[in-house]
């Protein structure tokens, strides 16, 4: 779970600002087009083992972040500790990958095309 979203975003933005597409070096990325949402969602469904996956407020077409909402709560869950789960989106050796907060690769997104993230800072 990502509990330090702002720091995470700052780190990603910093990475993007410094990113030079050197072979093998990870580069913050976004989805190449809206059509990539379909294979992305298929990958996320497989990764989470859930038939229904919903993205959170982060837009992977605009920012290098993929956020997965927790399953919806039932009406009796008045103290619900659920949090969204956020991953960084990166290009590594040409592959589009999800990374966790520490930069550890979580999954290669098969069939998903990404493009380098062009940060405003960069």
């Amino acid at each position: 779970m990502l509990k330090t979203g702002f720091a995470f975003m700052t780190a990603l933005a910093s990475l993007a600002a410094c990113a030079h597409p050197v072979s093998g070096a990870p580069v913050p990325a976004i989805l190449a087009s809206e059509a990539e949402l379909t294979p992305l969602m298929a990958e996320l469904r497989e990764m989470t083992g859930r038939a229904n996956v919903e993205l959170g407020a982060d837009d992977p077409l605009a920012t290098p972040v993929v956020t997965i909402l927790p399953p919806p709560a039932g009406p009796f869950e008045g103290n619900n500790p659920a949090l969204p789960t956020s991953y960084g989106l990166e290009l590594r050796d040409g592959a589009c990958v999800l990374v966790d907060q520490d930069g550890t690769m979580v999954r290669t997104l098969q069939g998903v095309t990404c493009a380098p993230y062009a940060s405003k800072a960069g």
Binding site: G5, F6, M9, G56, A57, D58, L69
Partner: peptide, 23 residues
């Protein structure tokens, strides 16, 4: 099974309906 960390006072969006990190 996860480490039981306290819930802090969140000062930013968490991605539910506000983008991560939104102050």
């Amino acid at each position: 099974g996860q480490v039981n960390s306290p819930i802090p006072f969140y000062a930013t969006g968490l991605g539910f309906s506000l983008p991560n990190g939104t102050p």
